[in-house]
Amino acid sequence: MNTLAEVWSWLTTAAHWSGEMGIWHRLVQHFWLTVGCLAVSCLIALPVALTLGHLGRGGALAVNLANIGRAVPTFAILVLLLLTPLGRHGEWPTVIALVLFAIPPLLTNAYVGMREVDQDVVRAARGMGMTGRQLVWRVELPLAFPLVLTGVRIAAVQLVATATLAALVGGGGLGRIITAGFNLASTPQVVAGAVVVAVFALLMEAAFEAGQRCAPAWARGRMR
């Protein structure tokens, strides 16, 4: 109970919200880091996944990538990148690690989505004389869209988490409030930072949930 009161008073202190180290600044950093890296990862992963899915090649790679990504600790990659020459260039280790870990869920889900398109539909489209390009844009991608979106959602939640860890290697973002709290041995600050991070992650997830509910029926897919 005592800790809760302390956490509340930490969160309601105006000074903790303003300035370079304040919550607002960290929140904005965290948001742009997440959204920017999500855009970059999508630009890299989705064309590859859609091409591979359309051609039906490289399935083992696309599916196993998610497994490999799961076995590699994010923290280890962050530190390894920090110790390379890249580490001397500000946020670069963080950005690269974020993109690296966002790619597997995007690639795997988009690939599986493309491959699971009903082959009868594909054959019908071919029979109507569609070219490969038309097939991708008018048939396969719309049908695969729900799973592609699931991949984007998993990647987004993943990015929020990775961006938090980036604080351990000196990156910006909300995680810095937590690491600063540990350095100051201030339990209220650690917990307050964690609450802000958790709320941010849950809001991100909720935004996707709301987006998927409001989307037109074809983009929502069957409920699974």
């Binding site: 939640v157 988490a161 937590i178 917990v191 964690a194 609450v195 991070v197 849950l202």
Partner: peptide, 17 residues
């Protein structure tokens, strides 16, 4: 699912008290 959404660093921090 909510538990799974919380980033690991935040999860450990929330358990600190």
């Amino acid at each position: 699912t909510v538990l799974y959404t919380i980033p690991s660093l935040a999860m450990f921090s929330l358990l600190l008290p």
